[in-house]
Simulated scan of single mutants.
Amino acid sequence: MLEVINGFLMIYFIVLCVFNVFVPYLVKPIAACFSRPSNEERTIWAEVVKLKAEQKTISMKEEFAAYSKIQRKINKLEGQLKEDSQSRMSKSIAIKGSIQIILQVVLALVTIVSVIWFRREPIVALKTNLFPFTTMLRYPSDMPNSISTHVWVLVSNISLRTLLKPIIS
């Protein structure tokens, strides 16, 4: 029923469509590389853990002053960690949004340029005649009963999003 005319273009556009579907899921690991806790945050966290361990060795009833002093230090360091964490999270959100926009724009430009560049190349040929739709399916190609790159990208995008939705959700 189908005859593949240009297998390279068929695979090329399918890969582009797959990347397009997975862009939101590629953003998270890429952004994680840019928003890791700093050495200062790690040092503060290690100090908080050390102070909590030290605090557990002190009896609250017998040495209230020393216990309270350590608790104030812990509270101060945890407050600083919270501020640093909030600023890192806001930067992370900005980075994720920027990366997602950049990836989507790059993929859209590559897809648009490719579709325009290969607009007259048919991807597959149908052995049967789909009379009312043949002109629409093959436009702007001249080959009868063929599917052009425009239609192939549209069909691939919709079908891949539908097929991969249960897997990625």
Rank of each mutant, 00 (worst) to 15 (best):
T162G: 03
V124T: 02
L130R: 06
E78L: 03
A94H: 14
V124M: 01
S87H: 05
I99M: 09
T128A: 12
L77N: 10
A94S: 13
S156M: 00
M143P: 04
A94N: 11
E83L: 13
R161D: 00
I112T: 13
W117M: 12
P122Q: 03
E121G: 01
I102K: 10
R88E: 01
Q80M: 09
Y67S: 07
A125M: 11
T128Q: 11
I147L: 04
I93L: 07
I70S: 05
L109H: 12
H150R: 11
I116E: 12
T135H: 10
L103T: 14
P144W: 02
L126Y: 06
V115K: 01
L77H: 07
T162E: 00
K82C: 12
L107V: 07
R120C: 06
L130K: 06
Q71W: 11
V113H: 09
I147S: 05
L154D: 02
N157D: 05
Y139T: 15
L107R: 02
L160F: 01
S85C: 04
Y67H: 14
D84H: 11
K127H: 13
K91W: 02
S148P: 08
S141V: 08
S98H: 10
S87E: 11
W152E: 00
V153H: 01
S92V: 04
L81P: 03
Q104P: 06
I74G: 03
F118S: 00
L81H: 01
S159M: 00
I99W: 09
Q104E: 11
I70F: 04
S148T: 07
P144A: 08
M136G: 02
S68Q: 10
V153C: 03
W152G: 00
A108F: 15
G97Y: 12
L126P: 01
K91R: 14
S98I: 09
V106Q: 05
I158P: 01
E78V: 06
Q86D: 14
D142P: 09
L81Q: 03
R88I: 01
A125I: 09
K96Y: 03
L137M: 05
L103H: 12
I158W: 02
R119F: 02
I101V: 15
M89G: 00
W117T: 06
R138T: 12
L137K: 02
V105A: 14
V115D: 02
T111A: 11
D142M: 05
P140M: 03
E83G: 09
V110Q: 06
S92K: 13
R161M: 06
Y67K: 09
T162P: 00
I99A: 12
I147H: 04
P140H: 03
S92T: 08
V106C: 14
E83M: 10
I112H: 07
K82H: 14
I74Q: 01
S148R: 08
I99L: 14
D84L: 14
V151T: 05
I93M: 07
I93Q: 08
E78S: 07
P132F: 10
E83K: 15
L107C: 08
D142T: 13
S98L: 10
A94D: 05
L107T: 05
